Amino acid sequence: MCGPCWCWAARGWSWPRPPWARRRFVTWGATAGEAAGTLSGDDLLPDVGLVSTRAVTIGAPPSAVWPWLVQMGSGRGGA
């Protein structure tokens, strides 16, 4: 016999969440300023239904992070 959480997941439904929890998931790791700001490409789809901005803080200078980022992607070390 399955529990209520399993039944929801098996049907492909998401568990109902209060509005404050949804905001937390779609802005994970981003500051309020980052989440409210505009990013390049935002003008390409002006009337979207859901906007999410997620962020990660890395304790390293860009010169140390950039070599790792360029490895990712199709046809590179990450694919």
Results as ranks from 00 to 15, higher is better:
residue 30 A to V: 09
residue 30 A to P: 09
residue 30 A to S: 15
residue 31 T to I: 02
residue 31 T to V: 04
residue 31 T to W: 02
residue 32 A to P: 15
residue 32 A to C: 06
residue 32 A to Y: 06
residue 32 A to Q: 13
residue 32 A to I: 08
residue 33 G to V: 07
residue 33 G to Y: 06
residue 33 G to S: 10
residue 34 E to M: 14
residue 34 E to V: 07
residue 35 A to W: 03
residue 35 A to H: 05
residue 35 A to V: 05
residue 35 A to E: 03
residue 35 A to P: 03
residue 35 A to N: 08
residue 35 A to Q: 08
residue 36 A to I: 06
residue 36 A to R: 13
residue 36 A to Q: 13
residue 36 A to N: 13
residue 37 G to W: 02
residue 37 G to I: 00
residue 38 T to M: 05
residue 38 T to C: 08
residue 38 T to K: 07
residue 38 T to W: 03
residue 39 L to G: 06
residue 39 L to E: 03
residue 39 L to C: 07
residue 40 S to N: 04
residue 40 S to H: 05
residue 40 S to P: 02
residue 40 S to I: 06
residue 41 G to K: 01
residue 41 G to T: 01
residue 41 G to S: 07
residue 41 G to I: 00
residue 42 D to F: 00
residue 42 D to I: 01
residue 42 D to R: 01
residue 42 D to V: 01
residue 42 D to G: 07
residue 42 D to A: 08
residue 42 D to N: 10
residue 43 D to T: 04
residue 44 L to G: 00
residue 44 L to P: 00
residue 44 L to D: 00
residue 44 L to N: 02
residue 44 L to Y: 01
residue 44 L to K: 01
residue 44 L to F: 00
residue 45 L to W: 00
residue 45 L to I: 02
residue 45 L to S: 01
residue 46 P to W: 01
residue 47 D to K: 04
residue 47 D to T: 10
residue 47 D to R: 08
residue 47 D to N: 13
residue 47 D to I: 02
residue 48 V to P: 01
residue 48 V to G: 10
residue 49 G to A: 13
residue 49 G to F: 00
residue 49 G to S: 11
residue 49 G to K: 01
residue 49 G to W: 00
residue 49 G to N: 03
residue 49 G to H: 00
residue 50 L to D: 10
residue 50 L to P: 00
residue 50 L to G: 04
residue 50 L to S: 09
residue 50 L to Q: 12
residue 50 L to F: 08
residue 51 V to A: 04
residue 51 V to T: 14
residue 51 V to F: 01
residue 51 V to Q: 05
residue 51 V to N: 02
residue 52 S to Y: 02
residue 52 S to K: 03
residue 53 T to H: 07
residue 53 T to C: 11
residue 53 T to A: 11
residue 53 T to G: 03
residue 53 T to R: 15
residue 54 R to I: 12
residue 54 R to G: 14
residue 55 A to K: 09
residue 55 A to S: 15
residue 55 A to D: 11
residue 55 A to F: 05
residue 55 A to Q: 11
residue 56 V to K: 10
residue 56 V to W: 14
residue 56 V to F: 11
residue 56 V to N: 09
residue 57 T to G: 13
residue 57 T to V: 13
residue 58 I to E: 05
residue 58 I to C: 14
residue 58 I to P: 09
residue 58 I to M: 14
residue 59 G to I: 03
residue 59 G to Q: 11
residue 59 G to Y: 10
residue 60 A to Q: 15
residue 60 A to F: 10
residue 60 A to H: 14
residue 60 A to T: 11
residue 61 P to T: 14
residue 61 P to K: 14
residue 61 P to C: 10
residue 61 P to D: 15
residue 62 P to W: 14
residue 62 P to S: 12
residue 62 P to D: 13
